[in-house]
Simulated assay, not measured.
Amino acid sequence: MIEDDDLVPFEFSDFWDEEEDDTDTQPIEPDYIDRQIACIPQYGDDSRWRLASYLDMFADLNPDGSLSNEQREAIDNFVLGYQYKMTNQPIGLDK
């Protein structure tokens, strides 16, 4: 018969906590971002949606490729900020 002294102590407090799995995360590729930004004038929301999906910008991104006005504006603001950061000069800002 097994006695209590024979059992190995086990801590249950974090047994069901999920550990973060970084194996699914992909590195952010600036080249991909640049290509999608360059395609926005020609493909519009399709390139915006691909960029938002790649960067995981929105939890409620429509799987059909459509964007709300707020999402479109947020992506365009990201593009302006990204281009400014990469070139240190504003691109496409009307003053």
Rank of each mutant, 00 (worst) to 15 (best):
D60Q: 09
S47D: 05
D94M: 11
D56W: 05
L7Q: 10
S68A: 10
P9T: 15
D17F: 10
I33N: 06
S68N: 03
I91H: 10
P27H: 07
L61H: 06
T23I: 02
M1C: 10
L80W: 00
D94W: 07
P9D: 14
E70N: 08
D5W: 09
D46Q: 13
S53K: 14
F78H: 05
F12S: 12
S68C: 03
F10T: 09
E20I: 14
Q26H: 06
D31S: 13
I28Y: 04
S13N: 14
D56I: 13
S68E: 10
D22L: 13
F10L: 11
E18Q: 15
P63Q: 06
I2T: 12
D64H: 07
A74H: 08
Y32W: 06
P9M: 09
Y43T: 13
P27I: 07
D14F: 09
D31L: 13
L55G: 11
F15Q: 15
G92H: 01
C39T: 06
N77K: 14
D34W: 00
Y84E: 06
D45F: 02
E20K: 13
P9Y: 05
E3N: 12
E70M: 08
Q42R: 11
Y32M: 07
I2E: 03
Q36F: 00
Y43S: 10
P30R: 04
S47W: 00
V79N: 05
L7G: 09
M86E: 11
K85T: 08
I2L: 14
D46W: 05
R50E: 10
G92Y: 00
S66H: 04
G65H: 08
D45P: 05
D45E: 13
W49D: 02
T87P: 00
N88V: 01
N77F: 13
D56H: 12
M57P: 10
Q26A: 10
N69W: 02
Y43A: 04
L93P: 00
K95N: 05
I40V: 15
A59S: 11
Y82L: 00
Q83A: 00
P30L: 04
Y32N: 04
E18W: 10
